[in-house]
């Protein structure tokens, strides 16, 4: 179980290097790095502030990590998530998975990111020239998460979201 919630900046390349080192049993390693954008929907962002609740945020993410591990049968997972003030261009989140075959690693990272984007106990504020904005998950974030309940549910979900919004490729 490897989940780190920290205020310190991190180097995603180094995290991936350390995570990958000496994994003779892994057939594939997938990683994702989420970066703070300098604009959202055309509005400039000069600083992102993530509020975490220490002692509450970590266990919630650990539960997501354990869930992903169990669902996809990956060999190892790493989640590093920052909180506090984050400048544009800095990494916010890093997720890596090691698995015997690539599909499990891709899926575990994809799933964990969707869970983090909709359910992780963070409160996010964007600072820009026009002041501060508190951010909540966007509709596409929930649609991304719903893919997994469809994939894992025995029941047929109502086709509510056929008008799927374009996927935000940035994070």
């Amino acid at each position: 179980m490897a989940v780190r919630v920290q205020t310190e900046p991190f180097d995603a390349g180094r995290l991936l290097g350390d995570f990958s080192a000496g994994r003779l049993e892994a057939g594939g390693i997938v990683s994702f790095t989420g970066i703070a954008r300098d604009a959202t929907g055309g509005s400039a962002v000069t600083l992102l502030e993530l509020d975490a609740y220490p002692g509450f945020t970590e266990p919630a993410i650990e539960a997501m990590e354990a869930d992903a591990r169990a669902r996809f049968g990956v060999q190892d997972l790493l989640v590093v998530h920052r909180h506090g003030p984050i400048r544009p261009g800095e990494a916010i989140v890093f997720v890596a998975a090691a698995a015997e075959h690539r599909r499990a690693a891709f899926d575990a990272v994809d799933f964990l990111m969707d869970r983090l984007k909709t359910e992780a106990p963070f409160w996010k504020k964007e600072r820009g020239p026009d002041g501060d904005r508190w951010i909540e998950p966007r509709a596409p974030d929930y649609q991304d998460m719903e893919r997994w309940s469809r994939a894992f549910s025995d029941e047929v979900e109502p086709a509510a979201s056929s008008d799927t919004a374009p996927k935000d490729m940035s994070r």
Binding site: G34, L116, P121, F122, E136
Partner: peptide, 10 residues
């Protein structure tokens, strides 16, 4: 005791 508004996600 903590009061938590709707979470933003990561």
């Amino acid at each position: 005791i903590a009061f938590l508004p709707p979470m933003s996600g990561g």
